[in-house]
């Protein structure tokens, strides 16, 4: 028993010394919420719907995000404008169920749905955590600027007829059999 006393004392002094040393080290903790840390861009927080470079809604209401969502918290209804553009008539995310896994962002073929580094979403009731489209849709391209799905797709929209996509040839004239 007596043999252990010096070892114990050494351990005790070592931890005391470490504590003492840290008293003069630069602090990592910040007094949140007075001071807010900037989070990395890939942080998975509040979800937004972004716009394409032309300022139009990016989401084409393909339902892939709602299909992949493991907790089934995305609900939307597709609609389309007469000119061929598809958009979600309603888009709803229940953030009281969302587990911020980022699967929706991964699944989205148009880069519309994106997770942002914002996590401050406290509300008094569950109902207020159900975000509607007007709360989700932002006026920005988010973290993937420059991509416009319709420039690559085959369908026609105003300003882009069939054959006008970035990798399209002009449409075939099917009324003739000449080469």
């Amino acid at each position: 028993m007596n043999k252990q006393i010096p070892t114990l004392l050494i351990r005790l002094w070592r931890s005391l010394w470490a504590t003492l040393r840290h008293a003069w080290v630069k602090r990592e903790t910040v007094p949140y919420p007075e001071i807010k840390r900037s989070l990395p861009g890939r942080w998975r927080g509040r979800i937004v719907l972004t716009r394409d470079p032309d300022g139009e809604e990016r989401c084409v209401a393909c339902y892939l995000c709602s299909a992949v969502c493991p907790v089934d918290c995305i609900h939307l209804q597709a609609a389309q404008l007469d000119n061929g553009r598809r958009y979600p008539e309603t888009f709803r995310i229940d953030f009281s169920r969302c587990i911020f896994c980022g699967f929706c962002e991964e699944a989205c073929p148009t880069l519309a749905i994106q997770l942002t580094p914002d996590f401050e979403m406290c509300e008094q009731s569950h109902g207020e955590l159900v975000y509607e489209k007007k709360q989700l849709l932002i006026e920005d391209q988010g973290k993937h600027p420059g991509y416009n799905f319709y420039r690559h797709a085959g369908i026609a929209i105003p300003g882009k007829a069939i054959g006008g996509g970035v990798s399209d040839t002009p449409p075939v004239d099917h009324d003739t059999n000449l080469p």
């Binding site: 026609a156 069939i162 054959g163 399209d168 040839t169 075939v172 099917h174």
Partner: peptide, 8 residues
């Protein structure tokens, strides 16, 4: 490369 297209 580029893709063939058809009108609808």
């Amino acid at each position: 490369g580029r893709k063939r297209t058809f009108t609808n």
